[in-house]
Design a protein around this nucleic acid. Structure first.
Lengths: 199, 199, 199, 199
DNA sequence: ATGTAAACGAGACGGTACGTCCAGTCTTGAA
DNA sequence: TTCAAGACTGGACGTACCGTCTCGTTTACAT
């Protein structure tokens, strides 16, 4: 969870940041987002609930969007910890199920809102990619690449294409508000992407 | 393009609705959305640009979200008219390319914003599904179903799963702000979904 | 009591200004200023007390200073109505007593605060002069001028000098926070300015 | 120039106060006030300009108002040093001219702001009187008293009334933002207060 | 020489009010 | 009835300073 770094000049100058306040803010923000989604995650409400001054929030988070990113990362880390052994296709299949299960809640909601926000805020876009999108995506791509090397997958495809084929359908259902992606659906996707749907 | 219907009491009483105003509003809204996306599409700005009173907009559109839906439909109809002959897999392949080409612009941006909005507004969610999501989705599902009947596709899969496998990757790239989905990518997706990526 | 004029285009367009709101605002502002002086006269407090939205205040008053001017004028008009018959020296003597009596309260306090504010806000300075300072000052100068014409006063002095000699001591005590100018003091001032203090 | 006294327990314990810092603060504060008046005299700006921590300012000055008083005294001492020989009417006439010349600048501006502030801050009011208002006023009153004893002035007037008659018009013009009091005006005032304006 | 008390630099914190932007509603007169 | 105009309520924003607090660091006197 990375916020603005404590104004980096000398290492230990000035009053140290209040860890307590930071935690209270994040906790309050998470609670609010869980209950009312992104619209409920106002700086004002967070400040009140955390028992913290509004200015204290602004000192560390530039706006509510980047605070929401921290909340999203927090939730995501808990609900679907990033895959550790990304070296096999099996790991991807598992990860797929986890994502499907985890994302159909506050996490998915926040993600959607932030993606929308990120279209007009460079900083949000960057943060979202660096802290949410890319880490998992690249782990997956490495796994795909390894599988290609082992001869388990066609190697005439860029790994990103394979990753998109796998994750795309899950997030499609999620973001478009279609039927929620079940774990069963995730498994079907995995199997059919590997085997194809043609005769 | 469906707005509120002219308050239905007696058929033709009072001043008739100004068709000109309706068009001016939609045109202004489209222009604003094209330039600055959803955040620029404020009722205030639309009213000024269309030379129309704010009240007039609210008389016909419940809020800015549903106005944006009309804009989205307008743009979508032009950029990627809904498939006419949905009876062959070829048609889906073509549709896929069209979507990939069309959605990487104002349309995709608006869609994302509206999806975000729809999470806390029942009416928006319904309108978005009825006027944007379902029509195309159901046409695609019928095409898949027909292909299954003709024995061109495995028939142990629900058509919706196949549709998600095809459209998912495209919209995934689009909505997540990854590399824009190119037409080439669309073709790869189609081919690999049919043939599989395994060895 | 002049605020921003109702956006002057066509005469009777749009929803008319709410007289009720205007009065409630002014009443609330006066009450707050009377109790806690200028510092208590915050837009926020006025809005709450008047049961009015903050934006409504800002629509008609550019900032709290010009609102305070209206309050000052209101109070001043009541406590010391501008002299009607300004044609005799007797009138000035009376006016002097009235000012001395009236200004030692909320009015004096507001005046001081506004003078301070006006030093860095052109608009406030102008409004203060046009609506508070000049009207009375010019009436007094006309009275002095008339007295000079009648031969009751030396005519080798600019009327403004005479006015300053008369009003200066009163406001000096007032603004500098010295002993409050009593009516007795006002009379002494008048008499000694006319007769001199020398032997 | 009186600030808080160095926490008085044991006589000479701990690190001694930095005279250099004190001077830097006062110099910075004066510069800021000269340029932008009282509003520019923020603790934050002073601290930065003086290269000093905000805490250091607060250690010696209770708030920005009393710091401003020190600035005012500094400026006043330089621009219009207090009269040395206050024993003759001539000295008052000179002092009057000096005041008129000096006060039409940063000094007058600060004075006005501080008078305003002093209305709701007992400590400021006291300090302002003790360090600015009274010293000069009492010197003037002694001079008047002496002149009365010598038979140069009517002795049926309290000296404070005479002082107000003399200084009032000058400060009236100054504080009310009327035409700046010129030295010529100061002389007229002196002469007319002694001789009267009547026929 | 060394311990200790106070000053100092830095900066986080709680807090108040500001003025702004829009949203969506209400009220009027004219078409 | 609709339309244009515009006043209204209301929520949240992000900013600027205030004055307080809590650190680590420095400095000089008193032991």
């Amino acid at each position: 969870v990375a916020t603005r770094s404590p104004t980096e000049t000398a290492p230990n100058r000035g009053r140290p940041r209040s860890e307590q306040a930071r935690r209270a803010i994040l906790k309050a923000a998470t609670a609010l987002a869980t209950q009312g989604g992104y619209p409920a995650l106002t700086i004002e409400a967070v400040a009140e609930r955390a028992g913290v001054a509004r200015t204290t929030i602004y000192r560390w988070w530039a706006n509510r969007a980047v605070l929401a990113i921290d909340v999203l990362v927090d939730i995501g880390m808990t609900a679907a910890p990033p895959p550790t052994s990304t070296d096999s296709l099996r790991a991807i299949r598992l990860e797929l199920r986890r994502i499907a299960a985890a994302a159909s809640g506050t996490a998915g909601e926040l993600l959607l809102a932030l993606l929308s926000e990120s279209q007009h805020d460079e900083a949000v876009r960057t943060a979202l990619h660096e802290r949410v999108t890319y880490p998992r995506r690249e782990a997956s791509m490495r796994a795909v690449s390894a599988a290609q090397d082992r001869g388990e997958l066609r190697d005439d495809l860029h790994p990103s294409v394979v990753v998109d084929l796998l994750y795309g359908p899950i997030f499609y259902r999620l973001l478009m508000g279609l039927d929620a992606p079940t774990e069963r659906f995730a498994e079907q996707v995995f199997d059919r992407v590997l085997g194809g749907v043609g005769m």
